[in-house]
Simulated assay, not measured.
Amino acid sequence: MRHQRGAAILTAMLLVTLVATLSAAALWQQWRAIEVETAERAHAQSRWLLQGAADWARLILREDARNTTVDHLGEPWAVTLQEAQISSFLGNTTEAMSEHLQGAYLSGQITDLQSRLNVLNLVQDGRVHAPTLLAFGRLFEALQLPADELMVLVAQLQIALAAPEAPSTGPAGNAPHPLLPRSTEQLGWLGVSPATISRLHDHVVVLPERTPVNLNTASPLVLHACLPGLDLALAQRLAQGRAQNHFRSLADVVQASGIAGLSLNDGMHSVGSRYFEVRVRLRLGSVLSQERTRMLREGLQVKALWTTREIPQGASVQ
């Protein structure tokens, strides 16, 4: 009898353990399903909000083109949107939506990509474009970057722009054909070191066609690089002066510089832009998301060329 009673107790304990294990597993699966559903919902909401922000930026750029072909840093598109609660923009008529977005915060900015030196300008019709090479040389010198890296960049760019099917002769024909980058971060494909890329990041750009530098939005360093005869001190004064009165034509630039013989041309210099970058950052609860969209404006048409989703430093992305 004692043996039978002990076996019954052991069986009961095993059954209790089994039930507890099954219950814990069921609870874990339920919790996991809720977590997955929450993450998917947050991801969908983030994508919707980021797309909406990009569309809003596209509208701003289109409306700007209705008013003038001159682009400068005093226009609405150039104002950085500091982090703000999305529900504060919705008003009282969308109370339900506002409550749903209480934890959503948005920030962003539009950058004129033609405020920078375009790497593709270095080569024209397969040959090195001397005025652009001079501008890059001045930039490298001002940033104290190695000139030999600029030469490597130009040589590799020529190869990358050459038609891949073009016949090659000699040992060089066996060398790998470098890929043509589409962003500054990819200049390593053309032999530029990470340290140099980091220093160049805010001053150069890779655009799919030749583009002039917008002298209304270029930094003093870029002004110094692309305007021969303009030292850094004069470039700084030129930038300060344009903050009060932006340039409406290239003639305004010559007059403001005080250099009568300043050489400008439409191929390298302008006062308007077509390429922009929209960067949007969203904080939805504990989740941070960031997207970067390159846009091309042709007249009143503004289209997205490509979008890159980025992970902000220290962010928790689901």
Rank of each mutant, 00 (worst) to 15 (best):
H3G: 13
Q4K: 04
R5E: 00
A8L: 14
A12N: 01
L15P: 09
V16M: 13
V16Q: 04
T17Q: 12
S23D: 00
A25S: 13
R32K: 06
V36M: 03
E37N: 11
E40K: 08
A44L: 15
A57P: 08
L59Q: 11
I60E: 15
T68F: 12
T68M: 10
V70Y: 13
H72T: 06
H72P: 10
G74S: 03
G74W: 03
W77Q: 05
I86C: 08
G91S: 12
T94G: 08
E95R: 10
M97Q: 12
M97E: 14
H100L: 14
Q102L: 11
Y105E: 06
Q109R: 14
I110E: 02
D112T: 00
L117I: 06
R127C: 07
V128R: 08
H129S: 05
L133I: 02
L134T: 12
L143P: 02
D148Y: 07
L150M: 01
L150E: 00
M151N: 15
L153M: 01
V154Y: 06
L157Q: 06
A160S: 04
P164M: 10
T169Y: 15
T169I: 13
G170R: 01
P171S: 09
P181F: 09
R182W: 06
H201R: 14
H203Y: 01
R210V: 00
P212E: 01
N214M: 09
L221S: 05
L234P: 13
L234A: 15
Q236Y: 06
Q236G: 05
A239G: 09
R248V: 14
R248F: 11
S249A: 04
D252F: 07
D252W: 01
V253E: 05
S257Y: 00
A260Y: 00
A260I: 00
G267D: 07
M268K: 03
S270M: 07
G272A: 11
S273C: 12
S273D: 05
F276C: 03
E277Q: 15
R279P: 05
R283G: 00
R283F: 00
L288T: 08
Q290Y: 02
T293K: 01
L300R: 12
V302C: 07
V302G: 03
T307M: 06
E310R: 09
A315E: 07
V317E: 05
V317N: 02
Q318M: 04
